[in-house]
């Protein structure tokens, strides 16, 4: 298992009232599979993904990535750098950096030497050749989102976490991105966890789940 989640609980203190967002979430994920999660707005999808991505911490329960419990780490930055790739609803590129630099941010952070062959392949694969030195402001929405996918996979992470990746794209670009996810999964064996409202995205999951009332149901 690349990921095991056990009895995960998370609540927010909203003034006096305590909002229980995640109540006892457990599931396992196999390497090389795609997990899609849907659920009404406010059901806690983003909350769950940020816990899995170590951007936030749970109240109780365990997250085990590559057989190692996250409890064992003091500093999550290294896990995020090496094991997790993020794709957000908004591309969240750094506008001061050009496309190549944005893509390489995780590699720069880990001080890894850039594999230029891999990089060239990626640019071709993502149909972004000739855009290497462009700045995010000069790209279309779909292009920006593809750049952010490249950034998510550059360090060859164990899990790619995508929160409504198509939420900000038009139909055409959304379809293109869905194909890309399928292809990346097939060609590189990448593992995805995707939260989405979009049924077309939801359908690519090998494992499909719905988050409702703080519980995760297999569909």
């Amino acid at each position: 298992m690349i990921l095991s989640v056990k009895n995960l609980k998370k609540s927010y203190n909203d003034g006096e009232t305590k909002l229980e967002v995640l109540k006892d979430i457990s599931f396992d994920l196999k390497k090389g599979s795609i997990l899609t999660i849907k659920g009404p707005s406010g059901s806690g999808k983003s909350t769950l993904l940020s816990l899995l991505g170590t951007l936030d911490t749970q109240d109780s329960g365990d997250i085990i990535i590559n057989d190692k419990n996250l409890d064992e780490y003091d500093d999550f930055s290294e896990i995020r750098n090496n094991h997790i790739g993020f794709i957000f609803q908004f591309h969240n590129l750094i506008s001061e950096l050009n496309v190549t630099e944005n893509v390489c941010v995780p590699a720069f952070i880990s001080n890894k030497a850039i594999d230029h062959n891999f990089l060239d392949t990626l640019f071709e694969y993502f149909q972004l050749t000739n855009k290497e030195n462009a700045f995010p402001l000069d790209l279309s929405g779909g292009e920006k989102q593809r750049v952010s996918v490249m950034r998510a996979i550059i360090n060859k992470p164990s899990i790619i976490i995508a929160d409504e990746p198509t939420g900000n794209l038009d139909e055409k670009n959304a379809l293109k991105l869905i194909d890309l996810f399928k292809k990346l999964n097939k060609d590189f064996g990448l593992t995805f966890i995707i939260a989405t409202h979009d049924n077309k995205v939801f359908d690519i999951g090998h494992q499909k789940m719905e988050l409702s009332d703080g519980k995760l149901l297999n569909l």
Partner: peptide, 16 residues
Amino acid sequence: TREMAILNAFGMNERS
């Protein structure tokens, strides 16, 4: 702050 949040999400530590 947004840029720093992104860098942090991709694994940059507090010190850096």
